[in-house]
Write a protein that binds this DNA or RNA. Sequence first.
DNA 1: TAATAATTGATAATCATTTTCTTTTGATAA
DNA 2: TTATCAAAAGAAAATGATTATCAATTATTA
Lengths: 145, 145
Amino acid sequence: MEALISDLKSRLKEKGYKLTTQRRIILDVILENQGLHLSPEEIYDKVKNKYPEIGLATVYRTLQLLEELEIVYKLNFNDGCNRYEINSNSNDHRHHHLICLNCGKVIEVEIDLLENLEEEIEKEGKFKIVDHNVKFFGYCEDCSK
Amino acid sequence: MEALISDLKSRLKEKGYKLTTQRRIILDVILENQGLHLSPEEIYDKVKNKYPEIGLATVYRTLQLLEELEIVYKLNFNDGCNRYEINSNSNDHRHHHLICLNCGKVIEVEIDLLENLEEEIEKEGKFKIVDHNVKFFGYCEDCSK
DNA sequence: TAATAATTGATAATCATTTTCTTTTGATAA
DNA sequence: TTATCAAAAGAAAATGATTATCAATTATTA
Ligand SMILES: [Mn+2]
Ligand SMILES: [Mn+2]
Ligand SMILES: [Zn+2]
Ligand SMILES: [Zn+2]
């Protein structure tokens, strides 16, 4: 997590941006809530505990910026808002999400196993893959009865 | 395509809904534009050519209904609106999408190849998979230079 | 220290989608 | 066929997430 903050600092500087208190706290909140996939509003609420003067617009702006810098990743679970998580692996591995159709719970899966599929797709020579996004829908343990 | 219309008719009747002209035309437009992933607004424009009195709210309402009946499938390419396509295979096979990060073009891939991954996930016994959604990001032929 | 550029917070504006409400339509029974 | 009644449609207003605007503040540079 320290690595991420210094990462942020250098990537910001690189583009002439500053590491402000607000930005750092927003990233802190996301870091402290790994796996929860917070929405901007939820992040706003949590940040307000640490920095009550924060404005909602700043949260939106910062999330945009962090996404641009590939420090966070934007998710869409079709529940009316975007959600964000740390982009732990800018390089290769990206985890998948299992979404329970009954209770809405979101479970993370670390195995990737897309190599075959990606290879097969690139074999055609018509597309160069650099990232993917995989969601599985079904029923979690509790909801399977 | 005829199959889909009669499918629609029976699934509607099953739930006490009616097959109206508007609903049929909306489905026709989606059928006539396979692979284009139209947005509600785009569907509205095309339907207006055949039925100028249609209202936008009817399009939204019908899309919701068709999705509920599993006749269409809702997609999100993060471009500010939802998009819809025929849910050609309610059973098993669902095609994937390749999205060009440069020009935005969307290409469909028919190979599935997720069996291994799904098996591996279900092996843990914590989740029963019934559907998936897979997007690949990268560069299309034209944009790879 | 003065000048300049970046950042913020408050507020207004956008824009896709939903709701509300009144009128119309269509299936069914008398 | 006609009366009845729920479903459906269209117009218009409302909602709600996100974005843009703008004046004030803060950090950096000359
Ligand atoms: Mn996650
Ligand atoms: Mn498609
Ligand atoms: Zn569940
Ligand atoms: Zn392209």
